[in-house]
Amino acid sequence: MNELPSIQTSHLFPILHQKLIVLLRGLSTGDWQLETVCADWSVKDIAAHLLDTSLRTIATYRDGYSSPDTPRIQSYQDLVNYLNQLNNDWVRATRRLSPAVLIDWLAQAGREADALIMALPPNEPALFSVAWAGQAVSPNWFHVAREYTERWHHQQQIRLAVGQTADLETDELYQPLLDTFMRALPHAYRDTPAPAGTLLQFTVANLAGGNWFLLRRHNHWTLLPSGQRTWNGGSPHEPSAVVHIDRSYAWQLMTRNLAPELAALHVRIEGDQALGRQFLQMRSVMM
């Protein structure tokens, strides 16, 4: 069977956390107020959001606590609306805190939250599914990988604002992020028709493990294991479209930090243009 392997990210959390704290401690007073690609949020706002993520993780997994104000979620849009309100409420409230307070809290809460995430049994059902991949139930390893992408891309938003992006773009830290994001491809293409056997290739140049293949099987799309272009040893397929993705901008494309028309400037499509352009509608975050 061509089952997709799990993505191992737990060991990367302490690395990300250490890089974040070093980064924040090195910011100047002016850096904290810089605008970011995250609409209406400054560098300080994103740092506050990362603190909120850690505190909510501790409340959930250490204390088993759920806020009594949580509304009934009946749809994907309900969930998006709730999370947006939750995040914005926190950011507005923490604008009264100093950067030093945020760093101190993050240094402690981030370590504790990461330890809780890293301890989750990888194959057991997660408390929270990865909705942007179309899943109603997800294994913990996928939830953990999704949490890794959250920490990575928010830290990178800060780094982009202050011109220090290289630290997170190593193959060790970047490839697992993109591999996790690419798990959204079948969901992104779910309403895109094509003949059975149609193969699409997505390539990020100069990245170890930077090729992904999406295969049309009967009435659905299937993401193939890394490096495979066939299903269960069948005849190899030639891609109907090859989507070349700019390495430096790949994370922004998949988190929708760039509008599709701007994202198109950082993507080159060979072959079927319509099939390739559907990639620009993919999202690997809740929005």
Rank of each mutant, 00 (worst) to 15 (best):
N2L: 04
S6L: 03
Q8M: 05
T9Q: 00
S10I: 00
F13H: 01
I15Q: 00
K19G: 03
L20E: 07
V22G: 08
L23F: 07
E35W: 13
V37I: 14
A39V: 15
W41M: 03
S42H: 10
V43T: 02
V43L: 03
A47H: 02
L50M: 14
S54V: 12
T60E: 12
G64L: 10
Y65F: 15
S66V: 15
S66M: 13
D69A: 14
R72H: 07
I73P: 01
I73F: 02
S75W: 04
Y76E: 14
Q77W: 03
L79N: 09
L79S: 10
N81D: 15
N81P: 04
N81A: 15
L83R: 15
N84K: 13
N84S: 12
N87W: 05
V91P: 02
V91H: 04
A93D: 15
R96W: 13
S98K: 14
P99R: 02
A100C: 11
L102H: 10
R111D: 07
E112T: 09
A113Q: 05
A115F: 06
A119V: 04
L120D: 02
P122R: 00
E124K: 11
P125T: 04
A126M: 02
S129A: 15
V130C: 10
G134D: 08
S138W: 01
F142H: 07
V144E: 00
A145E: 00
R146M: 14
E147Q: 10
Y148C: 02
T149F: 01
T149L: 05
E150P: 07
Q155K: 05
Q155C: 09
I158W: 01
R159E: 07
L160G: 11
V162M: 04
G163N: 07
G163H: 03
Q164K: 12
L173A: 06
Q175P: 02
D179S: 11
T180G: 10
F181W: 01
M182R: 02
R183K: 01
T192R: 04
P193G: 12
A194F: 01
A196C: 10
T198V: 08
V204T: 05
V204F: 01
L207T: 06
G209R: 07
W212R: 02
F213C: 06
R217A: 12
R217V: 14
N219D: 14
G227V: 09
Q228V: 07
W231L: 15
N232W: 04
N232F: 08
S235G: 12
S235C: 13
P236V: 08
P236A: 10
H237T: 10
S240F: 12
V242F: 06
H244K: 09
D246I: 06
A250N: 03
W251E: 03
L253S: 03
L253I: 13
L253M: 08
M254C: 08
T255D: 05
A259N: 11
A259D: 14
E261V: 11
A263P: 03
H266K: 09
H266I: 04
I269S: 11
A274P: 08
Q281E: 13
S284C: 15
